[in-house]
Nucleic acid binder design. Structure first.
Lengths: 213, 213
DNA sequence: GTCTATACTTCGATAGAC
DNA sequence: GTCTATCGAAGTATAGAC
């Protein structure tokens, strides 16, 4: 990842700090001072390298989205059967969110934001994620392994629960702490298992044969 | 809805304006000036009636959450079979979001926010929504109509796609405008149909019988 | 209860030395 | 390339007249 280049290293430090700040406070709530402080770099450096808060935000979103899209394409290039591929797509989403804990919250926030602060290039990077996902589903449908569900619909039904369940971890903790939840919610791995099963059933093309329970 | 009471009417005007502002800009991005302007009331009045931006936000969240939870309980009290009840739960969510367009975005943002700005009372109101939903699923499981899926898991798998798909409408428009989407995404009604079908399959307890295609 | 004017604070951004 | 000091804008909140 080119960590030998000091310029790259500085960008990474800024990205990590910015990701944490934007995820937990949102674009408007994020403070440039806090990002610089967390990155252990002077604030003026941030402006020197990125120009503005907005451009830093865009760079973060672009980098992250392109990374996610690339990982999904990797899964799509494997020789797995479509059903297994969907399992791996879900696992990959979760894996990415484990590596980059900020990902779900930033994603949800940007959706709610409706694309304000974004330029065309960043928008394109964002769109690469549903595109990569849709390609996988479309091939499964074409091969007859999946029901003819619109790929973009499958994308939202798969990705949204994952993003929301992961982003909701803090508020679940709050609810649990205040004794406002009747039962302990399953951990992420269990949730992923349920989601995989749900999508297998949702996309299953031969209801009378071989539903895995 | 007590529209005859002028005090109630004023609160409603504030709520409507605040909802729009919080949904499109987030808590930190929301501007008290804009809320007052949109409500066609002086800003000082807002502070007179609600005390602060934060308390206005909490009041909005409480009112909305309690309304949603009440609507879900209504569905739960009907004499429908569990499968039909789930269809109606999904339809009800969508209906509420049609009446109150701000609902999905505010919900997603608050999840990402992790419960900051919230007091115990508002947190409890928020928790009432998954509680009401879970009660419905739990009864379906107890009656043998549903597979033994943890109700809270079913909640996230059902609610998240709806919230995200609705909240993502603006960014889908942006993507479409920039020609960054290969196909036109289904409208909300079609999406709801797919989600209902997905949840029927996900909760179906007898895979060999009566799957509706 | 309602409005005007303003106090006080915080934030994004930059100028300018090194 | 890096840091300090600071500016100007914009924000929440309130004091005080009516």
């Amino acid at each position: 990842m080119l960590w030998h280049d000091p310029r790259r290293c500085l960008r990474s430090a800024f990205f990590a700090a910015a990701a944490h700040e934007f995820a937990s406070r949102g674009y408007a709530g994020a403070r440039v001072d806090r990002i610089a402080q967390r990155a252990r770099v002077n604030k003026a450096m941030l402006y020197y390298h990125f120009g503005s808060k907005r451009q830093l935000y865009r760079a973060l979103l672009r980098t992250t989205s392109l990374h996610v899209a690339a990982r999904l394409r990797e899964v799509g290039e494997s020789s797995d059967r479509p059903e297994q591929m969907m399992d791996r797509v879900i696992a990959t989403f979760a894996e990415i969110a484990r590596e980059r804990a900020f990902f779900p919250a930033v994603m949800l926030r940007e959706i709610a934001e409706g694309g304000a602060h974004l330029d065309r290039e960043t928008l394109a990077a964002l769109g690469a994620v549903p595109m990569a996902f849709s390609a996988i589903v479309a091939r499964g449908v074409a091969a007859g392994a999946f029901r003819p569900v619109p790929p973009i619909v499958a994308y939202f039904i798969t990705m949204a629960p994952l993003m929301v369940y992961m982003a909701a971890a803090p508020i679940r903790r709050e609810l649990a702490k205040s004794r406002l939840l009747p039962v302990v919610p399953p951990d992420l791995d269990a949730f992923i298992g349920h989601l995989q099963q749900t999508m297998r059933r949702a996309l299953e093309n031969e209801p009378s044969l071989g539903i895995t329970t």
